[in-house]
Amino acid sequence: MKIDNIEMNILKSFLEVIIPSNDDMPSAKDIDLNLDNILKENQKYIKPTKQIVDFIQREPAARVMGGVLSLTEIQKIDILKMTEHLFPDEFAIFIELIYLGYYSNPEVHKKINWTLDQDKKDFNLTPFDDSILDNISKRDPFWRKA
């Protein structure tokens, strides 16, 4: 089972509603979420995603005029809210897919000042200093004898 091109295009048309842009951050549509690879490597997302896309396609608003790709932002939000209400478990997995794609993106990491460089100087914490135990160390032992 896999997500076909039509389904992927529908999914992508909702990305900017799920994670919109603001002054600091790109929308989920503006960056590469690497969805093809994530879906290929992790089968658990495929069935729920197909179910969400199928529901979207069946929505009356999506079946008139230009179809799904012509939906307004407000219509997309309404459809997503209804999908979330009707299929909460599947929707949660679908959102997990989008969030993982978004927050694994190097551009997003840069925007939020996140790095995988473990040797970064700022990460080197001060070793434990036992002077912080001065107060608690004054307490008499209170473990229960048995």
Binding site: I38, E41, K44, L100, Y103, S104, N105, L116
Partner: peptide, 14 residues
């Protein structure tokens, strides 16, 4: 998992 961009994806999967 770790040291690669996909490490959080792996935490939620394999």
């Amino acid at each position: 998992p770790g040291d690669t961009q996909d490490w959080e994806i792996r935490l939620k999967n394999d």
